[in-house]
Structures are given as C-alpha cells and as structure tokens.
Simulated scan of single mutants.
Amino acid sequence: MNIENLIPLPTLSTHYKVEISFFNNLIEMGLLEIKTIEETQYIHPDAIFEIEKMIRMHQELAVNTEGIDVVFNLLQKIEDLQNELTSVKNRLRLYES
C-alpha cells in the first residue's frame, strides 16, 4: 500500500484533539487497525467514519473505550442479524411464489 494514502496517527490525534493513548486503547481492544511504517503508525482512510463515531461517543457521551467496544460489538451483531433476516425473507419469497 502506498504511504500517501495512509493517515499518520499523530496527525489524526491533532486534528480531532484526542490523545494518542485513546487510539492506543482502541488498537489494543481490536477496534482499530494500524499499519506501522518506520516507527510511525498509520490508519487507512476507510476507517475514518468508524473512528469519528468512536470519538463522538467518547467526547460527547463520555463513553470509555470498554463501552465503545461493547457498542460496536452490539452494532455488529445487529447488522449480522439484519443480514440474516434479509436472507431468510428472500428464501421465504421463493417458497411463496
């Protein structure tokens, strides 16, 4: 991957006014993937939407990183259940026709 497409973690920290330790906690919990190149941590631009949600939860709702982990796991389960429900509905339509 080209380094020009990646966002340095310190730049992200400065832009969102969030400490690096917040991102490190997210990384430790598996909520954030990083790529380390020459001792600098980078984030893929596709992750920005999710990162912004996590930052809003942390800053505006005072949710700690453990709470963010729980919320994101529940959101993932909801999405999985919605996909399964759609699949079951599609199969049911086959039998109804």
Results as ranks from 00 to 15, higher is better:
14 T>Q: 15
42 Y>C: 00
27 I>L: 08
29 M>A: 14
33 E>A: 07
20 I>P: 05
23 F>H: 00
42 Y>R: 03
54 M>C: 03
32 L>C: 05
49 F>T: 13
33 E>P: 02
54 M>K: 02
31 L>C: 15
15 H>D: 04
21 S>V: 09
32 L>V: 01
24 N>W: 12
39 E>G: 06
27 I>N: 12
31 L>N: 09
52 E>P: 00
54 M>S: 00
16 Y>E: 07
51 I>L: 07
43 I>W: 04
41 Q>A: 14
14 T>G: 10
41 Q>H: 12
27 I>F: 05
52 E>W: 01
52 E>A: 03
34 I>K: 12
23 F>N: 00
28 E>Y: 11
22 F>H: 03
19 E>G: 11
23 F>K: 01
41 Q>K: 13
44 H>F: 14
24 N>M: 12
37 I>C: 02
14 T>Y: 11
18 V>Q: 11
39 E>I: 03
52 E>T: 07
25 N>E: 15
35 K>D: 07
18 V>S: 05
33 E>F: 10
15 H>L: 09
33 E>V: 07
24 N>H: 15
39 E>H: 05
37 I>W: 02
45 P>D: 10
20 I>H: 10
50 E>C: 06
39 E>A: 02
21 S>Q: 11
23 F>P: 01
33 E>S: 14
28 E>R: 14
35 K>C: 08
21 S>W: 03
23 F>R: 00
44 H>G: 14
45 P>G: 02
44 H>I: 14
48 I>A: 04
52 E>N: 05
17 K>H: 13
45 P>V: 10
52 E>I: 02
26 L>I: 06
17 K>Q: 14
46 D>V: 14
49 F>A: 09
53 K>F: 05
14 T>V: 06
29 M>Q: 15
15 H>A: 05
38 E>A: 11
53 K>S: 10
22 F>P: 02
51 I>S: 05
24 N>T: 13
14 T>S: 10
44 H>D: 15
29 M>G: 09
54 M>N: 01
27 I>W: 01
41 Q>T: 05
38 E>L: 08
44 H>N: 15
21 S>Y: 10
52 E>R: 03
31 L>M: 11
51 I>P: 03
29 M>I: 09
37 I>H: 06
21 S>A: 12
21 S>H: 08
18 V>T: 15
41 Q>M: 09
21 S>I: 10
31 L>S: 06
31 L>D: 12
28 E>F: 13
20 I>S: 05
38 E>F: 07
51 I>E: 01
51 I>G: 08
46 D>M: 06
45 P>S: 12
21 S>K: 15
17 K>F: 07
52 E>H: 06
48 I>N: 13
39 E>Y: 07
51 I>M: 07
26 L>E: 02
40 T>K: 15
24 N>Y: 10
16 Y>T: 02
20 I>K: 08
46 D>C: 09
23 F>I: 00
41 Q>S: 14
40 T>W: 04
52 E>S: 02
